[in-house]
């Protein structure tokens, strides 16, 4: 039984819960899924899902709860949009109070695709093991991944600009998966991939 938390302070929490539930069912992986709002609730988690939302808000709430440090100890993290910003080692254009987890060796530029009129949906160009098919994935005031570190693999690219939009990093006993877009809104495939990779990482650790 894998212990999977969903950070539930703000954002598209229900969408991640639903995607994770469907993914576990489809892949026949036993998970215990629970929402998390305090540092105490992080106890015993093997993975945590970081929803899309407002990264400044999430950062402030996480700092207030003292959740950032204990979250770094969790073996597997999946983050979309704001969740990716929280996971990134380098963030362009962040406010002075905006602290993150600084786990994944990528640089992201917040809201770099512009304001809401520039938000879009598009199929992705798949470049790794994960396959989201031809499903159109929403990008909502999305961040751009502007630099990818050496240990980071690009799993999907923007179909016309070729910018990386889904990335993963494997470290001994750790697994990080981040997306600038929102597969959880339309598909459970990213969560299926995450659960499988996370199992592998836990074994290797």
């Amino acid at each position: 039984m894998l212990e999977v938390g969903v950070l539930a302070l703000q954002g598209d929490v229900a969408e991640h819960i639903e995607a994770a539930r469907r993914a576990a069912e489809k892949k026949k992986i036993q998970i215990r899924l629970r929402t998390v709002r305090t540092a105490a609730e992080l106890q015993g988690l093997q993975a945590i899902l970081l929803p899309g939302g407002e990264s400044t808000t999430l950062s402030l709430l996480l700092q207030k709860e003292g959740m950032l440090e204990p979250m770094k100890e969790i073996p597997a993290l999946l983050g979309t949009c704001a969740g990716l910003i929280l996971m990134a080692k380098h963030v362009e254009g962040k406010g002075p109070d905006q602290e993150g987890l600084e786990l994944m060796d990528v640089q992201v530029d917040r809201n770099a695709y512009g304001s809401q009129v520039d938000s879009f949906e598009s199929p992705l160009e798949m470049t790794g093991q994960m396959d989201l098919g031809k499903t159109r994935i929403p990008f909502i005031r999305a961040p751009k991944i502007t630099r990818v570190g050496e240990g980071v693999a690009v799993l999907a690219k923007h179909p016309t600009t070729g910018e990386p939009v889904v990335v993963e990093q494997k470290l001994p006993g750790k697994y990080y998966l981040g997306a600038a877009c929102h597969p959880e809104m339309v598909s459970s495939k990213m969560h299926e991939y995450f659960l499988e990779q996370m199992q592998a990482a836990l074994k290797s650790g």
Binding site: A8, Q10, G11, S119, I140
Partner: peptide
């Protein structure tokens, strides 16, 4: 599209 428009509202939840 409608999913892009309603998508922003989804991101605001809990806020």
């Amino acid at each position: 599209t409608f999913s892009v428009k309603s998508g922003l509202a989804q991101m605001l939840k809990g806020g």
